[in-house]
Design a protein around this nucleic acid. Structure first.
Lengths: 204, 204
DNA sequence: TCACAATACGGACCGACGGTCCACATCGGC
DNA sequence: GCCGATGTGGACCGTCGGTCCGTATTGTGA
């Protein structure tokens, strides 16, 4: 056996655990699923999960990781406008679309992570990559307001904020998307106002 | 004994519990303090806490309540500029100061509440009051951008966002205050740009 | 093919938690 | 001082994330 690689049964179990966790998290909500539930569903002892993944937080991260990796490949090496080589404004908008879809699609996992490790959204190394990339693309189109827009857009893209706007306030995801795009338009009158259309229902 | 009022020993214990909880939460961090810790510190059985307050969430709310009530009295009946009767712009800025101080001062409790009940920040009846009042004051000074500004400012005033900016990123609270005030200035060029000064350190 | 060391397994077990229960103590109107 | 209403405290419960270790599986080198 090559040093450092995984035994066949171990690899099989890792896959079974990840699959079971992904399904249960999706079906019942992350907080509702215990480690025992996952072990049972994966046909595995609880100890095996902890041996493979360390702790619950790491398991959640492991479920999220492949989705994030696939996305990152598109950003780093995919075709324009998302990948390198396209026009700056198109690249920015494609990137915003991707982020919105990713966060929305995986809001349950992301919120669970933030719930377990404070400031995960800002502090985690993987999400720092996404923020850095956002800042880079904004710098190309909005050299004046880069920091401000990065801050505003990244806050608007938080999983809990999106979840509130869409799930609780009943806003259409496409309204949110439109709002993000308008914020990122090299505006005639500055970055103000656009969200007023998205957020037409009064906050009060 | 008058129907519905509290027996003397019960009132004494309620006060002892609130005092002990407030001190422990403040000293050790909310998540680190168990109900047993509070019972011991208050010189009371654990059952007494649950009888008086129902559950842990309600206890945290009860610790926060008097601070919120005091503040609300200032807003509803205090002297201008914070209370009614002052000039609209001054009223708005005084209100932003108050909110910032309140959220910052009580960030530990607020974050703990949000941690326990999802969307507490937006959905709880007491915080809806603060959002409504914010929207009202913004409407008086920014009739065009009311909804947008309410959304942006309320997000910037979230306890976790402030905590991140100040505790993790090392930003000075007075920088944050200045940023809020600038966002709320009837701007020459719209609400953009101001935060760039607050957020000078790059986000990436 | 086989022996055996390295690796992995699983579920009993642990300590801590929030919350409940109820035999007993205290209060206060009469 | 009597006595029903109210309050008390801590043993107890179910569940959780996480650990431990005797046993089973794997794959390699001979």
């Amino acid at each position: 056996m090559v040093t450092g690689s995984e035994r066949a049964d171990a690899a099989r179990n890792r896959a079974a655990i990840l699959a079971a966790a992904a399904e249960l998290f999706d079906r019942d909500g992350v907080e509702q699923v215990s480690m025992n539930d996952i072990a049972r569903a994966a046909g595995v002892g609880k100890g095996t999960i902890f041996r493979r993944f360390g702790d619950r937080t790491a398991l959640i991260e492991a479920v999220l990781l492949p989705r994030s990796v696939a996305m990152r490949r598109l950003v780093d090496h995919g075709p324009p406008p998302l990948g390198p080589g396209g026009e700056a404004t198109d690249a920015l908008h494609a990137y915003l679309d991707l982020l919105l879809d990713f966060v929305w699609e995986n809001r349950a996992l992301i919120r669970a992570l933030e719930h377990r490790v404070p400031h995960a959204y800002y502090a985690h190394s993987s999400s720092r990559y996404w923020l850095t990339e956002l800042a880079r693309r904004l710098a190309a189109t909005h050299p004046q307001d880069t920091d401000y827009l990065t801050y505003i857009l990244s806050t608007a893209l938080r999983a809990d904020v999106l979840d509130y706007l869409i799930s609780v306030r009943g806003m259409d995801p496409e309204q949110v998307r439109a709002g993000l795009h308008r914020l990122a338009v090299p505006a005639a009158r500055g970055p103000g106002a656009p969200l007023a259309d998205v957020d037409r229902r009064s906050v009060s």
